[in-house]
């Protein structure tokens, strides 16, 4: 199996503060890697460093250049935009109307939404739409930061089921940042736990031990191993 990503001795220092220290890991083609850690652990910065969006030291090698990244929804400007229809938004990525409609339907949205304004969608609709946007050029690798932040439990389950469906159909590699342990049990091939540095890395069943979780979050965490874990 070929590597989708190889990271060696990654270090990120921002504003004089060490955000990520000596991080090394790799991701196989078609793997789902979940990055987890407490708030301020450097998860978002890690994704940005992997994409070259923040300065870093160390080696980052991607197996493909066809990468799509979605920042957390709250980092996307929605309110102070010009009249931007969903069709306009997909055109920013060069997608035709037909392709846009097809993608919207694939994520369970009505095709009529194409003429709606970017800032009039509900949180759940917006998240589905943005997933469609991320997938419209059929990326080999998808980086997703907190895809269900601000979404209720039902919506959360739908988003992950959707991602799972695409992962199975398109054989994508997915790097996902989430706090949700149940998602990790259910969907992750590997998990990378970080808190500035690597705390654990490997299959969830093996590495998500009470000891590691305590080291990661600094407190005891109750957790339940799901049957669906990989």
């Amino acid at each position: 199996m070929t590597k989708a990503l190889k990271v060696k001795d990654l270090n990120v220092v921002l504003g004089g503060e060490e955000i990520i220290k000596d991080l090394s890991f790799s991701v196989e083609d078609g793997e789902v890697l979940v990055v987890m850690g407490p708030n301020g652990a450097g998860k978002t910065t890690l994704l940005k460093a992997l994409l070259g969006l923040v300065p870093s030291k160390g080696k980052v090698e991607w197996g493909s250049k066809n990468i799509s990244y979605l920042p957390p929804q709250e980092f996307l400007e929605r309110r102070h935009l010009p009249p931007l229809s969903i069709k306009d938004f997909f055109e920013l990525k060069g997608a035709s109307s037909n392709k846009t409609t097809e993608m919207l339907e694939l994520v369970g949205l009505k095709s009529s939404i194409i003429s709606k304004n970017f800032n009039t969608l509900s949180t759940g609709q917006f998240q589905r739409m943005i997933i469609a946007w991320a997938l419209v050029n059929e990326p080999s690798i998808l980086l997703f930061d907190e895809p269900t932040a601000g979404i209720d439990v039902g919506g959360e389950e739908t988003i992950y089921s959707l991602l799972r469906k695409f992962w199975e159909d398109k054989k994508m590699t997915i790097l996902l940042v989430t706090h949700d342990l149940s998602i990790i049990w259910e969907h992750a091939n590997n998990v990378l736990c970080i808190n500035k540095k690597k705390i654990c890395y490997g299959k969830p069943r093996k590495v998500l031990t009470p000891k590691n979780l305590e080291e990661l979050y600094g407190t005891g965490i109750k957790f339940y191993k799901h049957g669906g874990g990989k």
């Binding site: 940005k48 994409l51 070259g52 969006l53 990468i67 799509s68 990244y69 979605l70 920042p71 980092f75 996307l76 400007e77 929605r78 935009l81 010009p82 931007l84 920013l92 990525k93 980086l143």
Partner: peptide, 13 residues
């Protein structure tokens, strides 16, 4: 326009 929505998103594209 894309960079107005998110500079990170634009740069990643």
């Amino acid at each position: 326009i894309l960079s107005t929505i998110s500079e990170d998103l634009a740069q990643s594209e």
